[in-house]
Nucleic acid binder design. Structure first.
Length: 467
DNA sequence: CGACGGGACGC
DNA sequence: CGACGGGACGC
C-alpha cells in the first residue's frame, strides 16, 4: 500500500469516527477546530474547496480518533451556529470513502448493538450489563422460536449513537459487540461468509462417510471408466501444482503396499519439475493407487493428478476380461486381507453399502473406531486438544470424521492462516483416547501432533470465555 | 517448531 | 441543499 492509500484509508478507521459537516461557505478549518476540539482527539480536518476559486463548498470532514468522540460531537453540534450571521451547521457521521453512497447515515443505524452473551442471560441481565453506557431503549435476546431457548445473541438499542459507540468501545471483549445491521433489509448476506455449517454425521451408520469397496468395484467395472482410455502400468506419474516433497508423496503412496520407488523428477539443474514418479511391484496396487489418489487433495486444496506412465520395462499384457479379473482379484484381496494390508478402505470394508456411493474422505493406516455422533454445541467443554498439522491443515469435515470417533466431540476449530487447530470434547476420556491413537499419525498424508491445549489466554476477569 | 473464531431479529 | 484523490474497461 502506498503513502496516499495509507493516508486515505485510515480515515475510515475505526468505523464511524469521521464527521460530515455542512456549513456556510465562510466557515474555516480554524473555526471548526475551535468548536470540535473539546469532543476528542481530532486527527484530520478537511474543508472541501472549489479547485479554481479555492472557495469553500460549505462541506467539511472532521476525523476523530474514536467513534464515540465523533458521535458525541455530532449530537452536541448538529444545528449549532459557529459564527455570527452564519447558518446552523448540519453534522452527520460521514459515509466511508469506499461506500460510494452519499446518503445520510441515520441514528437508526448507529444506536443498536449486536452482542454475544451467555445463554443464561435474561433481557434484564442484558440491560444491567449495558446500562452503564447509556439509557437503553430496548434489549432483546434472540431465542429459538419453539423452545424459547436463548441462542446466546442479543440486541441492545440505546437512545444516542454515542452511547452505542461507547458500549462497543468499552464493553468486555467477550461480548464481541458490533453495530447491528438495520432490521429492515433482509438478514445480512455476509453472515454466510462467517457461518460454518456443521457437517451432518449419521452416528450409528459407520459406512455413511465412505463408499464401499464392493460398490466402487461394481460401478467402475460396469461403466468401464477406470481403464477405458488408459494404458495400465505399474508406474504412475504424480503431478502437483504446489510444491511437495518426495517424502510427502512417498508417505501418501506408501498407504498402498508394494511400492518399488518414489522419485522426484528433476531438471538438469536439480530443480523439481513438480512431478513424482511412483512404481509399484504389482499392477493391482498401481491401479488401486490411481483410483484412490487421482484427484486426491494433497495438501488440501491441491489436487494431485496421476497418470500411468510407460517406464519402458513394464508393458501391460493385453487388456481383456482376464486381466481385469486378475486386477480385480488383487484389489479385493488387498481390502479384505485385514489390518496387515492396505487400510484405505478400512472404514467401509465389512460394512453394508452406503445408499449413495461417496468418495472416502479419510485415508490412513490408523485403525479408527466407528463414527460417533457429535454432541450438542452448547455442552460444557471438558477437554480441549491442540493439533498441529504438517504440512497443512486437514479440512474441518475430515477432522470431524476422525475426531468424533472417540465420543462427545463438540467442535473442530482451525486457526485461520495457521497449521494448527483445536478440538473440543464434552468429556475427558474421548480427548485422551484421541491423543493416544492419533498423536504423530498421518491422515490423508498430513502428519498430526495431537496434545492437550493450554487454557485460553485470560483476557478479562469479568466473564469466562464461552468457547 | 506450533496457539484462539464464531454472529442476526416473525414484514 | 451537501461528499472528499485521479483516472478508467471485467466474470
Amino acid at each position: 500500500m502506498d503513502e496516499s492509500n495509507r493516508a486515505s484509508s485510515y480515515l475510515d478507521e475505526p468505523a464511524n469516527s469521521r464527521l460530515f459537516l455542512v456549513t456556510s461557505k465562510s466557515i474555516t478549518e480554524e473555526t471548526i477546530r475551535e468548536h470540535f476540539t473539546a469532543f476528542g482527539e481530532i486527527q484530520d480536518i478537511r474543508v472541501v474547496k472549489d479547485k479554481q476559486t479555492k472557495e469553500s463548498k460549505g462541506v467539511s470532514f472532521v476525523k476523530f480518533a474514536k467513534s464515540s468522540q465523533a458521535c458525541t460531537a455530532m449530537e452536541e453540534m448538529h444545528g449549532a451556529c459557529l459564527a455570527e450571521g452564519t447558518k446552523p451547521i448540519k453534522v452527520f457521521i460521514a459515509q466511508s470513502r469506499s461506500s460510494g453512497s452519499h446518503r445520510d447515515v441515520e441514528d437508526e443505524e448507529l444506536t443498536r448493538i449486536f452482542v454475544m452473551i451467555p445463554k443464561s442471560f435474561s433481557e434484564d441481565d442484558l440491560k444491567d450489563t449495558f446500562k452503564v453506557y447509556g439509557d437503553i431503549e430496548q434489549a432483546i435476546i434472540i431465542r429459538n422460536k419453539s423452545t424459547g431457548e436463548s441462542k446466546g445473541l442479543g440486541y441492545v438499542r440505546f437512545h444516542k449513537p454515542s452511547q452505542a459507540a461507547k458500549a462497543i468501545e468499552n464493553c468486555d471483549k467477550t461480548f464481541r459487540a458490533i453495530l447491528a445491521e438495520p432490521r429492515t433489509k433482509t438478514a445480512s448476506t455476509d453472515s454466510e461468509y462467517f457461518s460454518n455449517p456443521r457437517t451432518e454425521h449419521s452416528g450409528n451408520d459407520p459406512g455413511a462417510n465412505s463408499y464401499t469397496f464392493g460398490e466402487y468395484l461394481s460401478s467402475s467395472y460396469a461403466t468401464g471408466d477406470t481403464w477405458s482410455s488408459d494404458v495400465i502400468t505399474r508406474c504412475l506419474l504424480v503431478s502437483s501444482r504446489v510444491a511437495v516433497t518426495q517424502e510427502q508423496i512417498r508417505g501418501l503412496f506408501d498407504l498402498i503396499p508394494g511400492i518399488d520407488f518414489c522419485e522426484m523428477q528433476r531438471d538438469q539443474h536439480g530443480f523439481s519439475k513438480g512431478q513424482v514418479l511412483v512404481r509399484y511391484n504389482n499392477l493391482g496396487s498401481a491401479v488401486y493407487a490411481k483410483e484412490k489418489l487421482n484427484g486426491f487433495e494433497y495438501p488440501p486444496g491441491n489436487r494431485l493428478s496421476l497418470t500411468y506412465i510407460d517406464d519402458g520395462e513394464d508393458r501391460t499384457s493385453p487388456v481383456g476380461k482376464m486381466a481385469m479379473q486378475l486386477v480385480a482379484a488383487q484389489m479385493m484381496s488387498m481390502v479384505w486381507n485385514g489390518p496387515s494390508g492396505a487400510q484405505l478402505m478400512k472404514t467401509s470394508a465389512g460394512y453394508t453399502a452406503a445408499p449413495v456411493p461417496q468418495k472416502a474422505r479419510v485415508q490412513t493406516d490408523v485403525s479408527l473406531p466407528p463414527l460417533r455422533k457429535l454432541v450438542a454445541s452448547d455442552s460444557v467443554v471438558k477437554e480441549r486438544l491442540f493439533v498441529i498439522f504438517n504440512p497443512s491443515p486437514l479440512p474441518v469435515d475430515v477432522l470431524e470424521d476422525v475426531f468424533c470417533r472417540f465420543g462427545s466431540l463438540m467442535e473442530v476449530y482451525l486457526v485461520p492462516g495457521r497449521n494448527v487447530g483445536y478440538i473440543k470434547y464434552a468429556d475427558r476420556k474421548p480427548a485422551h483416547d484421541a491423543i493416544a491413537l492419533l498423536h504423530g499419525k498421518v491422515i490423508n498424508g498430513i502428519k498430526m501432533k495431537v496434545m492437550l491445549a493450554d487454557p485460553p489466554k485470560e483476557e478479562s476477569h469479568k466473564r469466562q470465555r464461552t468457547y
